[in-house]
Write a protein that binds this DNA or RNA. Structure first.
Lengths: 230, 230
DNA sequence: CCAAAAGTGTTGAGAGTACACCCATGC
DNA sequence: GCATGGGTGTACTCTCAACACTTTTGG
């Protein structure tokens, strides 16, 4: 710390992370929200968040928040951006760095969620959120759409085995529009990252649909192929 | 500030902005760098940066840094992301939020640049940078490529009037590969955001090429059309 | 049998690519 | 004349979107 003197006139700031936690259930994309337990705006719907520790990377802080609220480790996390309007939090000047996370709802710890007073909300009916959290959700959604258009998402949101219809419904939830079943199937299989299993899922159709899984060591897509035109 | 008590146990952090300033000159994309005037790593090549003020939005801080180093106001700026590895700056724990800026080199204040000990470096031959600034440049470049593929950039980097060849060369510099002149021309004109002027530029060819400019109030592209497949 | 999802095939429109080709002009 | 960039046209390929059609099976 021998040089810190050069910085000592610089102001210091509260620094928080806010996590937009996406999950997929019942053909819907959902968001994990909770009622803010502290002032200001106590009781208002809020993203999961927390302060960044003294010597903690923001990514680490976001992972900590996720573990606390879902019990999960090793979650897929991506930084969205920093939100720094001076008055975004009326109580104090807090800069927040937003992340989005993709969660398998079937795997998460429902107990932890209850304990935090949290709830999964359908993305179509997100309640009014505190501060600028609605803006944060909007940006996170854009980023997720961008990611899903550049590579096949699903590993993080679906069970290990899934049908192509389930995958298509996930994409329909992400883009909030319908996709042609036949064309989606051809496009996705052409990417060569899925592997058909010999088992069938008969829960969602009479005929039964083959299960697929992500090929274990597929070297992902070549470059920047688009899955879905957006 | 009546609620600030809830936050008082949270640590406070130094918060900086670092600007990746892109300019275009002599068929090359360039970066404005300077020799760091303070310890640590005094004299090392560095991005333009500064601390975020007490009540200042990060975007405002970045604009301030830009004005100080180029004399320009109202610059195109986009946030890249926050960099927060605890040891990224060996002197103190500083979180940095990176921005990239697009500058018209012909318009900027060369005097200010000199005064700051700054230099325009070709993007192909960026020297070794301090801290994690090379990572920051890499991310900024990706973001610029993404932006340029989604909408026609140039307003921010080229003179008011320019030829299609100049625009193509800019894109070649951004993507670091050659583009077919005929195809580029057709694609770009099809976007309907350029307006042909009656003047010609004869400096770069014997025949002379028509000047174009961005149509004053064109409502940009429809959705997410791709200019260049990347 | 019927409805509904699974899965395959066909077709046409449009975009991207790789060129060939003429034009204008400074040297 | 010829090299160079400006500018246009063409032809092939590929992808995407729309939709027809067959399969399977529970009710």
């Amino acid at each position: 710390m021998q040089y810190q003197g050069h910085y000592k006139n610089a102001p210091k700031h509260y620094l928080a992370v806010d996590c937009v936690i996406f999950g997929y259930e019942n053909y819907e994309l959902k968001l994990l929200l909770h009622k803010r337990p502290i002032q200001p705006q106590i009781g208002g719907w809020s993203l999961m968040g927390g302060f960044c520790g003294e010597k903690e990377a923001l990514e680490t802080a976001a992972n900590r928040v996720l573990r606390q609220s879902t019990g999960l480790k090793d979650i897929y996390l991506e930084q969205v951006q920093a939100f720094s309007e001076p008055d975004r939090d009326p109580a104090a000047r807090v800069i927040s760095v937003a992340f989005y996370a993709l969660i398998r709802i079937d795997k998460h710890d429902a107990g932890k969620v209850d304990e935090m007073g949290a709830r999964w909300c359908s993305l179509d009916e997100v309640p009014e959120l505190i501060f600028d959290h609605s803006d944060i959700v909007e940006k996170a959604k854009e980023r997720l759409q961008m990611k899903a258009s550049l590579e096949l998402v699903g590993k993080e949101l679906l069970p290990d085995e899934f049908t192509l219809t389930q995958l298509r419904r996930l994409y329909e939830a992400i883009y909030q529009r319908e996709l042609d079943p036949g064309n989606f199937r051809k496009k996705v299989l052409g990417l060569n990252v899925l592997e058909r299993l010999n088992t069938k899922n008969t829960e969602e159709s009479k005929k039964g649909a083959f299960n697929y899984r992500f090929r274990p060591n597929s070297e992902e897509l070549n470059g920047h192929e688009r899955i879905i035109k957006i």
